[in-house]
Design a protein around this nucleic acid. Sequence first.
DNA 1: GCCACCGGTGGC
DNA 2: GCCACCGGTGGC
Length: 221
Amino acid sequence: MESSKSPQSSKTSRVVVPSDTNGSRFDNDNFSSECASNQMVVFNPEAGDKEQDELGESRAQKSGIIRGISPSIGAFTVQCAKCFKWRLIPTKHKYEEIRERIIQEPFVCKRAREWRPNVTCNDPEDISQDGSRLWAIDKPNIAQPPRGWERQIRIRGEGGTKFADVYYTSPTGRKLRSLVEIDRFLQENPEYVAQGVTLAQFSFQIPRPLRQDYVKKKPKL
DNA sequence: GCCACCGGTGGC
DNA sequence: GCCACCGGTGGC
């Protein structure tokens, strides 16, 4: 019944998930063979912000991350490898720091004490997998961007041919869309190379949508 | 005129 | 078949 999703005015844009359908599928059904602890997610809070009020930290996000940096991504959250609860990460920088070594150092609630002194696996999760938001599963172990550079993820609208785009903004404000462009930029601006910036510090891997039908299937002829 | 966004495709 | 890359363009 869900296979025939009609795009309905995708004009509404944004990346709000239609909700319902299957909220239970992700519970603990089984993140299955895949090691859930490796998965990191960014989500768009657009649809609901109830939980936001209950969390003191989310305030900082609201003014900081959401506003100024990326309208597409509302917040960053990581799943505890032990209890499987989702913990909000207070800053993008911290998120990127965790993501960079998520495989070698799986995230656990205890680590959230860096910004939430007494949190444990017994505390309720910061955010739940209800269908009210768009969840994007990020790729693990992506290098942190060089100092002064910013890596941005833009989630595309539902029904498109692609889920998201990644681009980097240089310290000078230049937006770069591919490794080819990065490489060219570095050649034209050797001072960054002198600072130690290398191509290996960049990745254009995009996250995957939790809902597979978010992206339009191939046209098929 | 610029740029954020989306679609198309060539190469793997 | 997937995805890295880039061209085109509509909205500001």
